[in-house]
Design a binder for these strands. Structure first.
Lengths: 156, 156
DNA sequence: ACTATTAATGGAAATCATTTTCATTAACAT
DNA sequence: ATGTTAATGAAAATGATTTCCATTAATAGT
C-alpha cells in the first residue's frame, strides 16, 4: 500500500527531500500507517500498531517523527483534553477533508463532523482577519471543538 | 478584600454549602486570589502567589480546590497548549464577562478578546443545536481559540 | 460551647506522557 | 564505496498532575 501513482516514488518523498530530511523506513512506516488507518491515533497507538512489522521502531522515534510530520504540515496534532496528543493526516491532496471534532467527555469517543463546517470556516476566517488587525496578531491556527456526552453515555 | 455586601458572608458560601462542601481557609484564600488577580493562573502560579500569606497551603490542595471550583462552575479550566492547565474565574455574576482567547505560540502571551464574540456565540449555539440533533450528542461545552504570533514575536 | 464524625489537608511517593541524552546506525552526497 | 552527519533507540530525565495515608479541622448534633 505504497500509494504511489503508476510510476515514481510516493508523493511524500518530495516533501521530505525538499526540507532536507532523510527518508527512513521508520518514517515511511508511520506515514503509511497514518494513511491506512483513518482516525486519531496517539503515539502509543501507533507504536503498538506498528510493532508487529517494525519491532525495532522505538516510541521515541515515533514522537520525533510525528513532530516532524506536524512541522512540515503532513499531520495535525490534536488535543482532546485526555492528556495525550492525537495525530491525524492533515487535510490536503491525500489527507482527509476539512472537518472538526465532537468529543465525548465520558468515553472519549470522537466524531468528525463536516456539517456546519462552511459557516464555521467562514466565521473563523472573518474573526481571524478582525483579530489580526485589532491586536496585531499573525494568526496561524485555530481550534474549535465541542465537548459533551455521546448518545450511549448520556443514557446513564 | 472579602467581597461581601454590606452584610452577610461572601457570595460563594452558598455555593459551597449547597453542594455539601466545607468552607476552609485554603479554599477561600484561593478564591480570593482568583478574584483579586484577573488573568490565567496555573496551579503553580497560585501556589507561589499564595505562599507568603498561607505558607502551609500545599500544591496538592490547590489542585484539588481548582478541580472543585471548576466542578461547581466557579472557575474555568483552560488549556493553551503549553502543557499546564490555567484557571480563570468563570463568567457569571462576579466573574469576567464572556470572552475568548488569542494565544501567542512563541511567548505564550494570551489576549482575552470580546470583540466578535456575539457572532461567534451565535454561530456556536447554532452549530451546537445542529450537532446535538444530528449526532445525538448532549453538548456541554466548547472551545474556540486562535493561535499565532503576537506583534512583538512576529518581528523576528 | 463540646465532641464525634468525617471531609480536607499536605508531604512524599507514584503516575504517565513526552523529552533528553548519548552511543550506535544508516541515509545519501560525493 | 565511503565519509559525513542526521536519525535512531534504550534508558534516564522531566514535569505536571494524582494518589496515598496519617494528621488536622469544619460542621452537625448535643
Amino acid at each position: 500500500m505504497r500509494n504511489r501513482g503508476a510510476f515514481g516514488p510516493p508523493w511524500w518523498h518530495g516533501k521530505f527531500r525538499g526540507c532536507g530530511y532523510r527518508l527512513t523506513s521508520g518514517r515511511e512506516a508511520i506515514l503509511e500507517l497514518l494513511l491506512r488507518s483513518e482516525g486519531h491515533l496517539s503515539a502509543e497507538d501507533i507504536y503498538v500498531k506498528i510493532r508487529p512489522r517494525y519491532p525495532n521502531l522505538g516510541l521515541t522515534t515515533i514522537y520525533r517523527t510525528l513532530d516532524l510530520l506536524a512541522h512540515i504540515g503532513i499531520v495535525s496534532k490534536l488535543d482532546f483534553g485526555d492528556g495525550r496528543a492525537r495525530y491525524e493526516l492533515a487535510e490536503g491532496p491525500k489527507g482527509a477533508r476539512h472537518h472538526h471534532h465532537l468529543v465525548c467527555t465520558s468515553c472519549n469517543k470522537v466524531i468528525d463532523y463536516a456539517d456546519f463546517i462552511d459557516e464555521e470556516v467562514e466565521l473563523l476566517n472573518q474573526t481571524e482577519r478582525g483579530l489580526e488587525k485589532r491586536y496585531n496578531f499573525k494568526i496561524t491556527n485555530h481550534i474549535i471543538q465541542f465537548y459533551g456526552l455521546c448518545q450511549r453515555c448520556s443514557r446513564k
